[in-house]
Nucleic acid binder design. Structure first.
Lengths: 153, 153
DNA sequence: AATTATTACTTGCATATTGCAAGTAATTAA
DNA sequence: TTAATTACTTGCAATATGCAAGTAATAATT
């Protein structure tokens, strides 16, 4: 019996994550409903961050123990992969799986919501980005997926 | 100086909520980046829940103290309103503000993501709903906003 | 070859948040 | 007049998060 306790979800005896209900919204929140998971994903998507130390340098200042547990959880749930570059045995390279990449529309809708509803305190830097997303969401998302793919190669 | 401590965000001396950074994604997560806030919003949107006891009967089983603090936070941040029905001095009626209603696209994208990526354990009941959303997102959202408006009247 | 730096963590402990059970005060219903 | 409902609060235990320091392996520098 695996005893790894993840911070949000945890594994039952049969090694299945335990969800609060079978509602799709609730179940997603069991995974990404916290302050940090989506920020790690954000940094992978938009800042091309790949390594533990990359993530630990986020402007929000994630604690290393939280980072560690989140990376493990995201990996176990299949949102990210953990790998190495050849010729380097030290540095772990984290990358988004398809399942992880597909969080993009959620993140973009969040950005759009904030842009509209929280802009008293937000910097204007994200405005052109959000504006472009709004003008043609499907294209924007398609282009981002293509960008993810080319980045890997 | 107001000393109300909200569970996620908290107020500074000048009564402004304190965000971790000025990133739109991080700032939204300062508000809705927890396991419960979006579930309350979900219940208001899709189950037409309005009262404290409505919310306390969610299938995920929110604790009443958490419910209480979340309702207060959502109200203070302008995502929901608190009111009464005339002729009833007891029951509080909570309703979504525009700011709160506009979380709909986020929630729908979350539902779509779960439908695709978590469906081992999800019930099929939400499938037609998600399918309809996918077929024409803009229309779907417009119809939902219209539904919210007519419900109030 | 030896020292230093970097990377990816873990550990311990304090603080904050959540979960649970019980209690309360103000209505409203029987 | 009593009972039930509603909207909470309170106390305490359990979890999760935050912070500082430590560690082991690898890689870079001298």
């Amino acid at each position: 019996m695996q005893v790894i306790i993840l911070n949000i979800l945890f594994m039952t005896q049969n090694n299945q994550p335990k969800y609060r209900s079978n509602c799709p919204i609730s179940s997603a929140l069991d995974i990404i409903g916290d302050k940090w998971s989506l920020l790690i994903i954000r940094d992978m998507m938009f800042a091309n961050k790949k390594t533990y130390s990359d993530f630990s340098k986020s402007s929000e200042g994630i604690a290393t123990n939280i980072l560690s547990s989140r990376l493990l959880m995201l990996e176990q749930l299949g949102l990210i992969n953990k790998g190495k570059l050849e010729g380097n045995k030290k540095t772990n390279i984290y990358s988004l799986t398809k399942k992880g990449q597909e969080l993009l529309p959620i993140i973009l809708e969040i950005a759009q919501w904030s842009d509209k509803n929280l802009n008293e305190h937000l910097k204007d830097g994200a405005k052109p980005f959000v504006h472009k997303f709004k003008s043609n969401k499907d294209d924007f998302i398609k282009n981002m997926y293509h960008y993810f793919a080319t980045r890997e190669a």
